[in-house]
Design a protein around this nucleic acid. Sequence first.
DNA 1: GGTTCTCTGCCGC
DNA 2: GCGGCAGAGAACC
Length: 286
Amino acid sequence: MSAKVSGHPAVARACRRLRDAESPLPLAELASEAGLSPSHFHRVFKAATGLTPHQYASALRADRVRGELAAGRGITDAIHEAGYGSSSRFYEGVAGRLGMTPKAYRAGGSGARIRFAVAECSLGAILVAHSGRGICAISLGGDPDALVRELQDRFPQAELVGGDPGFDAMVAQVVGFVEAPSLGLDLPLDIRGTAFQERVWQALRKVPPGSTVSYSELAERIGQPGSVRAVAGACAANRLAVAVPCHRVVRRDGDLSGYRWGVERKRELLRRERGMPPRRGTNGAG
DNA sequence: GGTTCTCTGCCGC
DNA sequence: GCGGCAGAGAACC
């Protein structure tokens, strides 16, 4: 277990440097501060964080924009404050980071179009939502209406489009994946989180079906053994059931801990992934 | 459109 | 574990 986080104080320091830096830091500079060659530092950093230094830095910048926008700052100011040299550069990459324009983001998703559908699977109702970039929500529950309300709460201003017939094939693919996670999901995901959350989610996606990790193990895997609570928080913030397999995180003592979509569903997912027969009475439906 | 930087794979120590 | 290099691709101007 307590896999020692192989000599990564350098990485932690680099992360702090990136956080504090006003302007982008070149790889060579980070590496020399870490006392490593650029190529080796790059490898070590990615192994520890799940992101390359460059990806990590842009995730941080996007965090800052989100923070500035959430604080009600003007869009141009927010982009500038976050460390983007020019707004055109920000807009080039923003679709990927925010999933929508800054104006739309600030307005709670207004103008964004989110297609969704609710289906039945063996775990009850399942909602799948797509932002145009990728799947932005997969949620499970007993009551389909509640799932839709939850989506609406999350994107209060977005235009939610349901019942799109062209959407069925994709939903079927997601349902198939939920029924058998080991098959993998061959669809792009629209994952949106803070830099830290994205690291945790990356690490989660590397946990193979049928196995579990503890929160502290996960914290070690992202190179921050002291951040167990933050890791648990990031797991809890996951919006993509099964695709980001937060159900594979359990307490060290074997306790299942919690699950956004119901601890019974977590139990059932884990049973299936271990090749055990499905249990009756888990799903709300039949 | 050219240059610089990033990123990865591979090999050597 | 670490360095270095090559080649492809992305970022930047």
